[in-house]
Design a protein around this nucleic acid. Structure first.
Length: 372
DNA sequence: GTTCCACAGGAAAGCTAGGATG
DNA sequence: CATCCTAGCTTTCCTGTGGAAC
């Protein structure tokens, strides 16, 4: 507001630590204060997950400032009405943004949320251009706030961009249990009726979330799910038990989501394990899984991988926590992995069958196996 | 004490899709 | 458009191994 060139700010921290919320709050306050100041302050918020190419960022910026210019009733003689979302050469859009911005003595704060997504998709050229704008502007100034949840993201950048973007750096560390408790309590007073939360419910949610990730959004999710469970039950209040159920439900949902996005071959291996489990086989063993897997593959005429590979896939499923595989030795009868399913067979099955392979025959388990 | 099963899992080479490059 | 590169899968070939049975 005093007309000095502000530092660019770079903010990083894990998801759910309040980066976006903080920036939005602070910029809103700033805009409020700036209304009484002689120099205008404009904040443009861009989520780079949605607006993720150089052209679209420039076009969005150009249109924002063209809009502001028109609001003020200024003459638009040499400026276009609007920049189309496709079609123009990039440098023309750039010039348009530049001219509209430089009409006034103003400060533009450009917030680039999820900036890592932008760089991943279209490189750091935009950032380079934006960081240089200040040296060409006569009246206006711009300042960039970059938000990223990838801590290593900076290393992908051009050193010049890196140094100018991180003039000021802020790190948001994950919330601890006390902070989460505080957040949950505030939200709870807004969304839950008095007395509908039993003692310890919020503490438990906070403790769980802090131990896992420190993500406030997910802590709130847990509280919400616990509330929904209690409501469905028609319970008087949300109890500690509901929170535990909610925790399990969230874990299960996460697991099912992982299963849904598994590559086909891994799904088939998992499917084979499920089939064996449903047939009541107590000790599920690599060799058996491979036999069932082969039958299933033949039924849907898919390539059959080698046992070596399937063994690796089983290890991967184990790492993901979908199954538990532990190596056991049966002495004279060899050494193998004993596999225990770690998900609800029915739900896991339907998650797998959402795939195009929906018509696998359940009789894929050979009879001699069920007898064995 | 030996044997030997039924795999585990390391190493290296082949294959392939997709992207970069000329 | 052809060609080259690369990462991620997969296969091939291999050595290693805990412990019940002999």
């Amino acid at each position: 507001m005093r007309g000095e060139t502000p530092s660019n700010v770079f903010i990083y921290g894990k998801t759910g630590t309040g980066k976006t919320a903080t920036v939005k709050y602070v910029t809103k306050e700033l805009e409020k204060v700036a209304k009484r100041a002689p120099r205008k302050v404009e904040v443009v918020y861009l989520n780079c997950e949605l607006v993720n190419t150089q052209y679209r960022i420039l076009a969005t910026l150009a249109n924002t400032f063209l809009g502001k210019v028109r609001e003020n009733g200024a003459e638009l003689s040499d400026l276009p009405e609007e920049v189309p979302m496709t079609g123009w050469p990039t440098d023309q859009v750039y010039k348009c943004f530049f001219d509209a911005l430089d009409l006034d003595k103003q400060l533009a704060i450009i917030v680039l949320d999820e900036i890592d997504k932008l760089v991943l998709k279209s490189g750091d050229e935009v950032l380079y251009n934006l960081t240089r704008v200040n040296s060409d502007l006569k009246k206006a100034k711009i300042s960039i706030i970059g938000i990223s949840n990838d801590l290593n993201f900076m290393n992908y950048l051009d050193p010049r961009v890196k140094s100018s973007l991180s003039e000021e750096e802020l790190v948001f560390s994950p919330y601890n249990a006390l902070q989460l408790k505080d957040i949950l309590e505030r939200r709870a007073t807004m969304s839950f009726a008095d007395g509908s939360l039993a003692d310890g419910v919020i503490s438990l949610c906070a403790a769980h979330a802090a131990r896992e990730h420190g993500d406030a959004r997910r802590a709130l999710d847990m509280l919400r799910v616990a509330g929904e469970l209690a409501e469905r039950e028609g319970a008087e209040a949300v109890t500690v038990g509901h929170v535990r159920q909610a925790f399990q439900k969230i874990e299960q949902d996460k697991m099912l989501e992982v299963i849904r996005t598994l590559p086909t071959q891994s799904k088939l291996v998992l499917y084979s394990v499920i089939l064996l489990d449903e047939k009541g086989v107590r000790k599920i063993i690599t060799g058996d899984v491979y036999n069932v897997y082969r039958t299933v593959c033949r039924q849907i005429s898919l390539d059959i991988l080698t046992q070596r590979r399937v063994s690796d896939l089983i290890s991967e499923l184990d790492m993901m926590g979908i199954i538990n595989a532990r190596i056991i030795s049966k002495g004279r009868y060899g050494r193998t992995k004993e596999i225990v399913l770690n998900v609800q067979p029915l739900q896991a099955r339907s998650a797998i069958q959402e795939d195009y392979i929906s018509d696998i025959d359940t009789t894929a388990v050979p009879h001699q196996l069920t007898l064995a």
